[in-house]
């Protein structure tokens, strides 16, 4: 067991992924993945589609099951034990490509659902916190609207606020801007950048290289279900080691 004091130490890993392997049927999607994320660290994962990057972060909060290896989040090992899964999901927030707001609930209810039912907060308390976070993502005036009445960018910001309401240790972003129109991408990235500056531990799967350059502490390039390259943003963009990374960057930066 890890010591709790050590655990909160800024230098200790909050996520430890070691030798993780995953198969879909016979298809080997994640191959010997090893990854340590320190508290407060911002990691950007990129790679071509089908490279397993989404699968990796979905494994971290048990939306997908891994068959081999170990994932430890904040001192809790991820296994079939429902208690552990629940604890990890409380500690890890996730933002999806397609927002996945609950259309039958108002924006405010979206944000208070989990605090009330999972953290057993009183509704008033939960609503107070929710309003704070909605203010931080700059849409407090939409609190009583339904998701269907908001633009894509607004919806994604609500989704971020919804995750933050659970006061997570780590935030996972699964291509948060891919489903958005160009003019809305910036408003979401601004929120994410601000969050990064506040010291949140973040793992982002994204193709927004500008965002990666300004925010990331570490870049990871994945292909064929494995981590091909891991480097600081400076080295990654200016002097990538592998040929595949160069190819990928060439394609993505040429637009």
């Amino acid at each position: 067991m890890l010591n709790m004091d050590n655990n909160k130490d800024a230098l200790s890993p909050v996520i430890e992924v070691s030798q993780v392997n995953k198969w879909y049927g016979q298809f080997h999607v994640l191959r010997d993945i090893n990854l340590k994320v320190m508290r407060g660290e911002k990691i950007v994962i990129c790679g071509p589609s089908g490279s397993g990057k989404s699968t990796l972060i979905r494994c971290i909060n048990a939306l997908e099951e891994h068959q081999e290896g170990q994932i430890i989040v904040d001192g809790t090992e991820l296994n079939r034990d429902l208690k552990n899964i629940e604890k990890i999901r409380r500690d890890v927030g996730m933002v999806f490509q397609s927002f996945n707001l609950f259309p039958h609930l108002t924006v405010l209810e979206n944000c208070t659902l989990a605090p009330v039912w999972v953290r057993k907060e009183s509704r008033a308390e939960a609503e107070k916190t929710a309003m704070q976070f909605l203010e931080r993502v700059q849409i407090p005036d939409q609190a009583n609207k339904y998701p269907g009445q908001l633009s894509g960018g607004q919806q994604q910001r609500v989704a971020i606020a919804r995750s933050l309401c659970m006061n997570p240790e780590v935030m996972l972003f699964d291509e948060p801007t891919s489903a958005l129109d160009p003019e809305m991408i910036k408003e979401v990235l601004d929120v994410m950048t601000e969050l990064a500056h506040e010291g949140m531990t973040m793992i982002c799967v994204t193709h927004e290289m500008g965002f990666a350059r300004t925010v990331a502490d570490r870049m990871i390039f994945m292909d064929d279900g494995q981590i091909i390259e891991e480097a600081s943003p400076e080295t990654f963009f200016s002097n990538p080691a592998s040929e595949r990374t160069q190819q990928f960057l060439g394609q993505i930066l040429s637009h």
Binding site: L82, F96, F102
Partner: peptide, 26 residues
């Protein structure tokens, strides 16, 4: 959609609650 269940699960809701609070109402 599957995403609704995933989002609810990612927030830490138990399978029964996911059903009652998110899936069934929709």
């Amino acid at each position: 959609s599957k995403g609704q269940k995933e989002a609810a699960a990612a927030l830490g809701l138990r399978p029964g609650r996911v059903m009652n609070l998110v899936v069934i109402p929709q």
